[in-house]
Structure formats: C-alpha cells, structure tokens
Design a protein around this nucleic acid. Structure first.
Lengths: 156, 156
DNA sequence: ATATGTGCAAATGGTTTGCATCCTC
DNA sequence: GAGGATGCAAACCATTTGCACATAT
C-alpha cells in the first residue's frame, strides 16, 4: 500500500502537481478502501481518519478527478446516482453487477476480454483496455434473501 | 411504432394500471426517440410536442420507472450523471461506449454474449439476459476530431 | 366510488464551482 | 513570489416526494 502512495506521489510530481497534506491523507485512505469506492465513501473515510476530517469535500472530489485524469484511478459505472472508482487495474478484469442488490464481483476472463477487444477494434474503437460491465438481473444471494419478497436493495 | 404503443397499452392493462392521456403522449414521444434516451430528453420531447408540455416532469419520471418495472424499458448505464433507457431489446445486444465522447454503438455478438452468460452463471448470477457494456478509451471519430486537442466532450 | 395518476413545488443527494486564503515549489 | 491547492458555502442538476386535485375504471 505504501508503494502505491509513493508511486502516486511520483506520478503527481512528474505531472507538475503538488504534494500536499490533504492529498497524502486522501491517498492513504484510498489505499485502505475496498476495491470499489464512491467519492462519498472516500470522503467519509477521510473524515473518520482524524477527528474533523483531513480534507474537505471539495478537495476529495477534486483530487479524485485529478487522479483519474492521471490514470491512477479508473471510473467504473457500477451503480446509478453516483460513480465509483477503482485503482487502475494492473491486470484486466471485468465486473459482474447484480441489478437487484448492487453486488459487484470482479472476474477475469481472458476469453471474454479478447472477444470484447476484437469486437471494439472491428468497430473502430480503441481497444487496448476496455472496461467490461456485465449487469445481470439477480444473483444467488438476492434470491436467497428475497424470502420476504423485498424490492431492489440500495447500497452496493 | 404504433404497435409498440398498443402493445404497451395492453401490458399496462394487464398489470391493472391505467391508460391516461399523459401516458399516451409520453409513450408516443418515446417511440419516436433515438435508440437511447435519458429521462430529461424524454421530458424535453414531451414538452416540445404541443405547446406547454403534455406531461409534467414528475409524470415522465414516474412513468419511465413504471415502464422499466414492467419490462417495457431497460435502464442502461451509459453516461455518468444521468441514466439512459432503451426499449427492451428483442434481440440481445451490447453497447460499445466511448469514454471520451460518449458515443454509443450497439453491436451483436452471440459469442461475446454466450461467454458472458456462461461466466455469470459460473459465479451464481442469473444469466438469462445480461446487459453488457464495453467502455473504451476512445473511438475513431474522437481521434479524428481531436485535431485541436480538446478534452472529453459532454453529451452522448 | 375509489384507488390511481397528475401537477406543482419543495426536498434530496451527489457533484461542482466562485472566491478568498494558504502553502508548495 | 506566484500559481497551484484548499475550504467554505452556495450553486447545480437529475431525480424524488408530499400533498391536494383530477380521472380512469
């Protein structure tokens, strides 16, 4: 995790951006977050960190956007209403998303990825590292819990 | 297009829901919209239709949600900030989305779909009709237009 | 007759922005 | 010292909701 911080610091420096206290705090939190997180979740984590928040809402949002532009983070369309980020993956993977409960599972399937890449290429899209989201109508956990017949859950 | 309206009317009736003026207007507009549309776009279309709007914002949003629940429409995660709908496709297809300009292209690839379905199944997800979104970093149109070196565009 | 649908306007929730101030390079 | 970075609060934008009124069945 520490190397991730150092790495990012170097990336920022290389881009001529500054290395500040709030940025360090935020990055530290990000490194300790689950695989996918929303800006709001990151903000919450930062806030918990030490008393009254190590970085303001604006700073968190702006920094996340910056990191995305730098290629450190990647934005993924998992839920509606708010976007999620993940660290730019070293190894290709795609997301299985349950439309009902929002659960996300990462899977690797070279075959699927190759097929997708080829497809994109054929249509004139840049196909180096396509992000693949597969949204399905339900998952086993859902149907197990849907004993009571609840609707769709909320938080991923 | 007319059959789509009649069909939907029948679906509503079957579900015990009412067939009202505003709903007819909205549905008429939807049938004439491009393949993918946002709630706001639908609202705008309805507004243009005849003078001062055939259905209120609330009605449009509520009706779209209703149609989704009935399986007439499907929600697709194309852009961030707002969701898009499409009529529930008769034939499976997936979306190639350009992250830069937001352009969306529909493609059919039985092979990709089968691979995805199998993958989802293996992980315990319901795999009848998975929605597949492939987001790529750029498309030919983008790179052609990026002569001036603009950033990322906005509207799909 | 009665549950459903509608419109309005206000509330919500995530995200962005203007501006004065601060701090890294 | 200068320009990037921060914080605050207000602004934004898509979407949702409460409530009184209208209407399809």
């Amino acid at each position: 995790m520490l190397d991730r911080i150092r790495e990012t610091q170097a990336t920022l420096r290389r881009a001529g951006l500054r290395w500040t206290g709030p940025r360090l705090e935020v990055l530290g939190c990000l490194a300790a977050m689950p695989q996918h997180f929303s800006a709001e979740e990151a903000l919450e984590a930062v806030g918990r960190q030490n008393g009254r928040g190590a970085a303001s809402r604006a700073t968190v949002y702006r920094f996340l956007a910056e990191l995305e532009r730098l290629g450190v983070l990647r934005k993924v369309q998992l839920a509606e209403g708010h976007s999620h980020y993940e660290f730019a993956p070293r190894r290709e993977h795609c997301h299985l998303v349950c439309a009902q409960c929002g659960r996300v599972e990462e899977v690797q399937s070279p075959r699927l990825e190759q097929t997708a890449r080829r497809l994109a290429e054929e249509r004139g899209f840049q196909a180096q590292a396509p992000a693949i989201e597969i949204t399905v109508s339900g998952c086993e956990r859902c149907s197990r819990e849907r004993t009571g017949g609840k609707g769709r859950a909320v938080r991923p």
